[in-house]
């Protein structure tokens, strides 16, 4: 077996994991499967691209590659702005669409359908603005460095893995050690009791949207950096994201990340064994097996 498969799987898995954390958090707190989450990935990538381009046009020095990486300082700065903008977009969609539906106590399935509509509109809006032609953060080609044991990775890939690992640890600490994290877990377990205990559910919901969208944005930037940016990039990730969120157990952040890595590795293996064109079917197979064998997921509670 090709050891490079492991590196490819880990990198894809890290992106899936970051996206799946957002899915699992919105699912456990807002209690519906958000089909528009993939669009936060795409929008995050395009917002970072646009901001980075803007910064680059202001100062050419920002475009000069940093050390071994393919991008200049314009990208990290743009990512900060794009995370904020993507979070703002999620809050806007919530204020216009999900919030009013929640207030009316709409059924879960109405929320799912609304997210489906939002997904289509947001994705096509990207296509309208940027067209469906793939774009890139950087045209620079990177040499993959040998890491020993037959593994090779580009500096961009290693950086992405490190960023993903740091983010997962940070989110886990946020959820388990901070007041807002405890509030999120409380609302996820029992919204009524959380209200009685003095927790403002609206604040928690806003936090979850911002957190999920921010992580999605970073996943989108990673995908854009390592592969390419297309309006459909997030939508194409949606099935792996759902598979990972369910495999990890709804509500579990470490579960989502671990399951993301499993899905990524399984996809890489599938690509190797049956061909790249069947990549998307791997997530579906995982989903079917989880639903059959352990619907509560690896770290989930049985209901």
């Amino acid at each position: 077996m090709n050891p490079q498969l492991i590196m490819d799987g880990l990198i894809a898995g890290a992106m899936i994991g970051l996206g799946a954390i957002g899915i699992t958090l919105t699912y456990s707190i807002l209690r519906f499967a958000n089909f528009a989450h993939g669009e936060m990935i795409s929008w995050g990538a395009y917002l970072a691209l646009a901001t980075s381009g803007l910064l680059g046009s202001l100062s050419g020095a920002l475009l000069k590659p940093i050390g071994p990486f393919s991008f200049g300082w314009s990208l990290p700065l743009a990512v900060l702005a794009a995370v904020a903008l993507t979070a703002g977009l999620a809050l806007l969609v919530d204020a216009l669409l999900f919030g009013p539906l929640r207030k009316r106590r709409s059924a879960v399935i109405i929320m799912v359908m609304a997210s489906f509509g939002a997904s289509l509109a947001l994705r096509s809006l990207l296509e309208f603005i940027f067209t469906s032609k793939p774009v890139y953060f950087s045209k620079a080609l990177q040499i993959a460095l040998p890491l020993g044991g037959g593994l090779r990775a580009t500096p961009d890939q290693l950086l992405s893995l490190a960023v993903a690992a740091i983010l997962v640890v940070a989110i886990h600490i946020l959820l388990t050690r901070t007041a807002i994290g405890r509030s999120m877990r409380a609302v996820s377990e029992n919204q009524q009791l959380a209200g009685v205990a003095g927790i403002d559910a609206r604040k928690v919901i806003r936090t979850v949207w911002m957190l999920g969208a921010g992580l999605a944005c970073i996943a989108g930037v990673m995908a854009g950096l390592l592969v390419q940016i297309r309006p459909y990039m997030g939508f194409d990730l949606l099935l792996p994201l759902f598979a990972a969120a369910i495999l990890g157990g709804i509500g579990s952040v470490p579960g989502a990340m671990l399951a993301g890595l499993i899905v990524g590795l399984a996809e890489a293996l599938g690509v190797q064994l049956i061909g790249a064109e069947w990549r998307a079917a791997v997530a579906f197979m995982i989903l079917v097996f989880v639903l059959l064998l352990r619907p509560q997921g690896l770290f989930g509670r049985a209901e």
């Binding site: 007041a179 405890r182 509030s183 409380a186 377990e189």
Partner: peptide, 15 residues
């Protein structure tokens, strides 16, 4: 909050 520790239950309320 059954999934949280005793201490977290109290910290949550103390918030």
């Amino acid at each position: 909050f059954a999934t949280m520790s005793i201490h977290d239950n109290l910290l949550l309320a103390a918030n």
